[in-house]
């Protein structure tokens, strides 16, 4: 199983699409490593700089609604994975992106908007987030204090993470 948790990158916008996460021109790469420097390169978000060195330290993304919409490219979870970001927490995901995350053994956690707002309250205060996968619970810690939230993922998605991904799961079963 992958390791989950660490410093949080807050992306305060809904409908962030996979073209913004990894532009189409890099889809000619056939290795995940080559994607590494291009994470979120075309993200349209005020104040966001894809070259910010802090991005390197992020291990968790917290964002808004409909994250990962648009193209089906699995390069989007891959570019996170290769940058050691294995968790995205949002108030909603596009279907294909969400499935791609679990298929890669990564976590796409959906929380209610109110809970997302409370996570965002820790922005700018050295927030880091830990994931208790077994008990489906996350905890955020920052200079402003700490707070815990229960989440739920389907039995299938949980099994995919435990198996290490869909290829492993399907290969053992079908």
């Amino acid at each position: 199983m992958k390791t989950f948790g660490g410093k949080v990158l807050f992306l305060d916008r809904s409908d962030i699409n996979t073209d913004e996460i990894i532009p189409a021109k890099y889809l000619t790469e056939i290795s995940k490593e080559a994607l590494k420097p291009h994470m979120l390169e075309d993200l349209k978000l005020e104040g966001f700089d894809p070259r910010d060195p802090e991005l390197q330290e992020a291990r968790v993304i917290v964002t808004r609604a409909n994250f990962g919409c648009g193209s089906s490219r699995e390069h989007a979870p891959w570019v996170f994975e290769i940058n050691d970001i294995n968790v995205v927490i949002a108030s909603g995901f596009a279907r294909i992106f969400r499935q791609n995350m679990f298929n890669c053994g990564m976590l796409a956690i959906e929380l209610a908007e109110g809970a997302i707002d409370r996570l965002f309250a820790h922005r700018g205060a050295n927030a880091s987030l830990s994931v208790d996968f077994k008990n489906s619970r996350i905890e955020i810690k920052s200079d402003k204090g700490s707070e815990g939230f229960d989440y739920s993922v389907s039995g299938f998605d949980k099994a995919l993470v435990e198996a290490g991904g869909w290829v492993e799961f399907a290969d053992a079963k079908y």
Binding site: S72, E74, I96, N100, C104, G165, A170, D171, Y174
Partner: peptide, 20 residues
Amino acid sequence: AGVGTTDLEVGILKGVCAFR
């Protein structure tokens, strides 16, 4: 339905895909 590369890979190998 559109899918990612992992779903595609399993589809190619096993002829199945999982959906809600």
